[in-house]
């Protein structure tokens, strides 16, 4: 995955080399922040791009970091895979300061990553991207029969569901019994 237009990716906080490019140069220099995912690769993202994320936006508003402080303290998102975070950062950069269109063609195309992407976007509270992602999940079952939906969305049948619940209860019962026996042993 290449680094974003405005940002760079590295194992450690990177030195900002270029100012973000936009049609009209901003009068006030844009501030940048740093985020990293599970892989610890740091992404440099402008405050404008991060505005899409209600979570990060809230964090920024509360912190009031200087550029140096931001560089030294990247936001850690240990629950998000590095490549997923990269996709999110890319999307935020692409849509920085722009109204989001009703149909987004810049959505990540890798369907196998869609689940992790949805969770990440939900966690980061990026409303528009979440809407697009949900639309993409919904499109997977467009025109499908109940059986096809069950298969695509990996939904167990009622019988499978009941069997799994029974199994889970059985396991919980065994564990509880084991704990009781262990506690009795300790008491002796």
């Amino acid at each position: 995955m290449s680094s974003t237009e405005q940002g760079t990716s590295s194992a450690a906080p990177a030195e900002p080399t270029t100012a973000p490019e936009s049609a009209a140069a901003p009068e006030v220099p844009e501030s940048f922040y740093y985020v990293h995912g599970k892989d610890k690769v740091v992404h440099k993202v402008s405050a404008g791009a991060l505005q899409h994320s209600a979570l990060i936006h809230g964090m920024i508003s509360n912190l009031g970091y200087t550029e140096e402080q931001a560089k030294a303290n990247p936001f850690p998102f240990e629950n998000i895979d590095g490549d997923i975070l990269q996709m999110v950062v890319d999307w935020c950069n692409q849509h920085k300061g722009k109204p989001t269109p009703p149909e987004d063609t810049n959505l990540p195309k890798q369907k196998e990553k869609l689940f992790d992407l949805v969770l990440a976007v939900n966690y980061l509270e990026i409303k528009e991207l979440l809407t697009y992602c949900c639309k993409q999940v919904a499109m997977m079952v467009k025109g499908k029969s109940p059986e096809e939906i069950r298969e695509i969305w990996m939904i167990p049948t009622d019988a499978e569901d009941e069997a799994a619940e029974k199994e889970a209860k059985k396991r919980a019962g065994k564990e509880a019994a084991g704990e009781t026996a262990a506690a009795a042993g300790d008491a002796k």
């Binding site: 939900n122 467009k142 969305w153």
Partner: peptide, 27 residues
């Protein structure tokens, strides 16, 4: 079936609901 699979039930309730409400009535 060649379609990619998606673990729909592993999504939180509110997201599942959001996805379903994005589908058409037939789905």
């Amino acid at each position: 079936m060649t379609e990619h699979k998606f673990p729909f039930l592993r999504l939180p309730d509110d997201l599942r609901s959001k996805v379903l409400q994005t589908t058409e009535y037939l789905e």
